[in-house]
Simulated assay, not measured.
Amino acid sequence: MTSLPVSEARTERHAVFVWLMSVTALVFLMVVVGGITRLTESGLSMVEWRPVTGWLPPLSEAAWQAEFDKYRAFPEYQKINRGMSLAEFQMIYAWEFGHRLLGRIIGLAFFLPMVFFIVTGRIRVREIPWFLFLLLAGGSQGVLGWYMVQSGLIDNPDVSQYRLAAHLGLAFAIFALLLLTAFKIRAEGRPMQPVGPGFRLPTTAFAALVFLQIVVGAFVAGTNAGFAFNTWPTMDGDLVPPYLFDTVPWWLAFFEDITTIQFTHRMMAYLIVLVGLWMMIAGRRSGGSAKRAGAAAFHTLLLQVVIGIATLLAVVPVWLGAVHQATALLLWAASLVALRVAWVSPSPRKR
């Protein structure tokens, strides 16, 4: 079999890169829409999961009424939204339907081009298991999403914060895997600038803390902790609020006590700023791509901190909460870029 010229091979692989970046952008949109769905309390409006047949919304007044009747049989309507009109139901249904439809579109946008690229050889044989794993990860996200919704269709009309954190964490993990795979393909045959080993430790710590903060943020959302202590820099006048860890056993407070959860989210942010500053300084010492990646990640972090404080002080309006979630994705992407620069780039040669 004759190998393709280097320029032609790069062009064909570039198509795979563009495809992966397009799917990554769709996942970005999916996470933001999911955040809006949560903030508008729309996630429990669809009480059935029809992954194959659920492509179309209700198309007649009778069909809408049937969906509304199903919703009214569950606790969210009975305990929170009793008396809701059909028009109001259609508004929350639209967000949840859009979220699920976008998930289906992402599935097709990944699967169909993947098959084409495998058949045409643009995805290499040794890469096929990895791309099948990515497909499986995306499918499992849909299953996990329904598992999360089920937790809110019982006596307490709110989804489990544990399942919400798992759902959001997996979404960010899938986003990372897609982005890093795209970066790997884009970098084929291109020399990387040397990066000093001093950049690796702070960058790795920074990325790990950003991901952990995202999971903590899911617990903030899942317990509605963002609607309490809407002051800054204190929490209703206290730098360290009373009743921290006021659970038995104490460690459950990290997951179930809104005071502890919000305090943890704040303290994590301050810690990430310090580690981010360390990373940026280390990047400046290394120079080149490390300097640029470290600075970009740190400045994105500062933007996210400002948006987070504004979201808290404004008592989490939907639009600002959505911006906060979108910026979290940008920060995660920036941290991944820095992480790749730190670990993929060669170390400078010793003289």
Rank of each mutant, 00 (worst) to 15 (best):
P348F: 04
M21P: 00
R349H: 12
F28N: 08
V215G: 04
D246F: 13
V33S: 09
M91P: 00
T247I: 05
L102F: 05
V31R: 03
L136N: 05
R13D: 03
A87P: 00
A66S: 14
W343T: 10
I272L: 04
L209M: 15
W278V: 01
G288E: 03
E12Q: 13
G287V: 11
V18F: 06
A165V: 07
T264C: 05
M1T: 09
D257W: 01
L153S: 07
E256P: 00
P346F: 05
G217H: 09
F245C: 07
G107A: 10
M1W: 00
L86Y: 02
R13S: 12
L177Q: 10
G98V: 04
L29T: 13
E76V: 10
K79A: 12
F229G: 06
M235H: 14
L108M: 15
G145D: 08
G35Q: 11
Q78C: 02
L4Q: 10
E256C: 00
P317V: 13
I185F: 13
V23I: 11
A338Y: 01
E8I: 14
R284Y: 13
A282S: 15
V159Q: 10
T120F: 03
A15Y: 09
S151W: 02
L86M: 11
V52G: 09
G152H: 04
V318S: 02
V275C: 00
A73C: 02
S60V: 11
P233N: 06
P113C: 07
